[in-house]
Design a binder for these strands. Structure first.
Lengths: 182, 182, 182, 182
DNA sequence: GATGAATGAGACTTCATTCAT
DNA sequence: AATGAATGAAGTCTCATTCAT
């Protein structure tokens, strides 16, 4: 899956033949098909793994004892840094969500969102922040103002259009806070 | 190009064989190759056309006599509405920018951005708004806080996760303004 | 036909699209089809023209009043020089004779050779030379010893493997004579 | 490769689709691409194989203990017989050398000819013959007088213009010898 | 369980030829 | 008579997937 991630991020899904992934992974082509039904299955599996890793990272890094503002700014900062250092993961995600794969997944998650996953640290953060200071802002806008700028900024960073030093990250995080605070 | 846009948005570049585009366009396969060197050329051409259309729409809709805040909020609103109604264009763009095509284009434009295109309404708006109230915010952050939320929100709208009525659009635009104002 | 000759020699029959020939000739594609039934017809026509030109050149240059040996050596020399300077024609011929086109033509000519074309200067020369000094050498061998070396040498010249100065040409012509003389 | 040789000789490179070669070889199209990078690669490989076969045949058949004249005549005779019986190989070679493929190869070999390949029976024969009796004849002429007539004669034989019986072969070989001897 | 050779559907692209203007 | 846009058959090549070893 690491080999797949690298290839997918570098060359895109359609320019990453299974045969090449096999070489990079140091296994036979057939072996891949023992663990993944087909190429789509592999792609989804890579996505799930990345998604999981990101959530774990956030769950570990977040200090839930901080006041709302600090916690939110910390969240944004960690998110930016994580995405900016995990280039392959970020690029993969971008592709994934711009493709039929991601749209499927997004729908599936939306449909099951009523379940209210209590173990999801992000959901909890949002819930907390939202209750505290954002009574009148709908969740979709909250999400848009939180993730939208982060994604856009990291994109530009990977394109070499901006360097994400501490000052830029802090300014961005504060701008996001200003956008959502009551 | 309309047929191509529809297919690309619906199925992605790699699941839109030229033969299918030809059928949809009601022409022979060879005809496409009279007007576009190859598939890549067609994709770039569709992008350029969409990009042009968006700029024209903005140039026509923007009221540059408004004060900064109103103008900015108007800009965001128009952008959201345009993207949300021009579904195919939006999805195409998302794909385009997540692919090698878009990265090329982004770089090319960035390198030539010194030229200062006076006819670009977006550039002019940014320049104006920036000078007036944003002296200390770097351009990349300004861009991130402006386009990031819009893109994210429209994505979710297309996924059915949110309905973009006037209230939501206004709230989002105001949140963006709060993020960037001095 | 000149445009066609140049293209065929340069790029081969199969890498010389009619559309390109039309551009080089400064006419429309359709126009070519008014004068030649199809591409094969054009190829054969070019061949016929070249063949005719060569025969005319030889008919004009040959001095039939010379003694046998001198006349033969003169013939070889003229042939080498002509082929070596008419690069396009030579390359075209090589291709033509190595293709189904040439094989057809060769057969057709063989079948009609009984007619004994009195106006063909080459045939006359051969007849004369043959009668005079070569009573025991079959015609095919005579032809092989005459044209074989010339073709081979010019090929190598065009490949840059040898430079055909007067000395080389004379030596070759004399070697041919030594091969066939009684 | 045998299937390819047959098709190429029969129909030419450009009228031998890979799909047809696959059928003749009793394999799938994709299989051919496992062993040859592309069609060009296949063509070159067929050439190399034929070339190798010819050299082996000559190396085995030549009696290097014979005196110069006998050895040379033996060489020409073997060459004619080999080419005349190996029709497919001969036609393939003709095409190959009249195409961009052959020109490349010829150049490449010419440039590396200084290396003096001691295992090449043809080179050795030429060297020996040349030193013994041909001090004043340049190598290109020697080659032209040797291979030119052979190629021309076999061509005519394949066209049905001459039957290569022992007498014709002997006469031709002797004529070649007369051409080059001191 | 692992392997990778074989497969062939299907994608892209070219180009000879036609025919309405 | 000249034109060249339109056409689609046909060719090259890739790659996801299978299956015998």
């Amino acid at each position: 899956m690491n080999a797949a991630l690298g290839q997918f991020a570098e060359n895109g899904f359609h320019s990453s033949p299974i045969s090449q992934l096999a070489v990079l992974a140091g296994v036979g082509v057939g072996t891949i098909y023992r663990y993944f039904k087909d190429k789509d299955d592999l792609i989804h599996a890579v996505f799930e793994k990345i998604d999981e890793n990101l959530k774990e990272e956030l769950a570990e890094s977040l200090d839930t004892s901080l006041p709302d503002r600090s916690q939110y700014i910390q969240f944004i900062s960690i998110l930016i840094r994580y995405m900016n250092t995990h280039t392959k993961e970020f690029i993969f995600m971008e592709q994934y969500y711009s493709s039929p794969y991601g749209i499927e997944t997004k729908h599936a998650r939306f449909l099951s969102s009523d379940s209210g996953d209590q173990s999801d640290p992000i959901a909890n953060l949002f819930a907390g922040t939202k209750k505290a200071v954002l009574k009148n802002l709908p969740l979709p806008i909250f999400l848009a103002m939180t993730f939208g700028p982060v994604i856009f900024l990291v994109r530009d960073s990977l394109s070499g259009l901006v360097t994400l030093d501490d000052a830029v990250i802090r300014q961005t995080a504060e701008a996001c806070w200003n956008a959502i605070k009551a």
